[in-house]
């Protein structure tokens, strides 16, 4: 017993220590990956055509799903606030809270999560497949820096596309709330729009844009990092895809909290 005690204590420490070391090592690798991407994004050669393709892929083709999410969320938010607010005679606050909630919080977060689901998974799957089929090695042997050719355009497009999409989603969400308030809840259109304009401030829009740019960086980073480190065939590609989406979701929600706290302290 006296001999086994130190061993059991050591194994308990080891059980905690191993995943902790692995986690720190992973954070280090991701930080190096992000730094490399930043350095290569500002040094030639550049691939503007690849950037344009990715901008279309990430931004334009995500618009339908983002638009639908925004209009449903804006409408549901208006209904919820109306019902909740009527309990204490505050149903008139619908336009103010819709604009506040959509622009500052729901617009950026929902767009971030929807695009993460659609784009981070696609990035990880595509890069992962390229890794396991040696296409990334082939790029290198053909004297093309895979980082500049594949990863930088994806990450840059993601950072640029997200703020634009969030601004569009916010507009659609506010419109969704407006339509529901007018046609179902009986609000006066002119006074609804006047209240919306009164409560929409430039600080709110800036916060949405900053959040969206950060979420875009996270989506590009997690999609590309997990994809480019894929190993182990089809199962490895599946794992990389799952890891990309889950890690992007968690980091988006965590950074949203962090930015909100820092901005509103």
């Amino acid at each position: 017993m006296t001999e086994s005690l130190p061993a059991s204590i050591l194994s308990a420490f080891a059980a905690i220590g191993r995943p902790a070391i692995a986690m720190f090592a992973m954070i280090g690798r991701i930080a190096v990956f992000a730094f490399t991407a930043l350095v290569r994004a500002v040094t030639p050669p550049f691939y503007p055509a690849r950037f344009g393709t990715q901008l279309m892929e990430i931004g334009w083709y995500s618009l339908p799903v983002v638009g639908l999410t925004a209009i449903f969320t804006g409408s549901a938010l208006a209904q919820q606030i109306y019902t909740g607010g009527s309990r204490f005679d505050a149903s008139a606050t619908v336009p103010a809270i819709v604009v506040f909630g959509m622009v500052r919080e729901l617009g950026p977060v929902l767009v971030g999560l929807m695009v993460a689901g659609r784009v981070a998974s696609a990035m990880a799957a595509e890069l992962g497949t390229m890794r396991v089929t040696e296409q990334l090695d082939a790029l290198t042997t053909l004297r093309t820096d895979a980082f500049r050719y594949l990863i930088v355009p994806r990450m840059a497009a993601s950072v640029i596309a997200l703020p634009i999409m969030v601004l569009i989603a916010n507009s659609i969400g506010i419109m969704g709330g407006f339509l529901l308030a007018i046609y179902k809840l009986g609000f006066n259109p002119a006074s609804y729009l006047a209240t919306t304009r009164k409560f929409l401030q430039s600080d709110d829009i800036w916060m949405a844009v900053v959040k969206a740019a950060v979420f875009g960086f996270i989506i590009g980073l997690m999609g590309c990092y997990n994809g480019s480190r894929t190993s182990g065939g089809a199962a490895g590609v599946g794992k990389a895809t799952t890891d990309a989406v889950v890690s992007a979701f968690i980091l988006i929600l965590f950074s949203d909290l962090l930015i909100t706290i820092l901005a509103l302290k």
Partner: peptide, 29 residues
């Protein structure tokens, strides 16, 4: 160097002519 990979490692997002000339263009149009 030129390298023939075991599985070919052709870029599946590109047509054959762009694959063949990739080493000359480095992916540029």
């Amino acid at each position: 160097f030129g390298m023939l990979f075991q599985g070919g490692a052709l870029f599946d997002s590109m047509p054959v002519w762009r694959n063949v000339t990739f080493g000359l263009t480095q992916g540029r149009m």
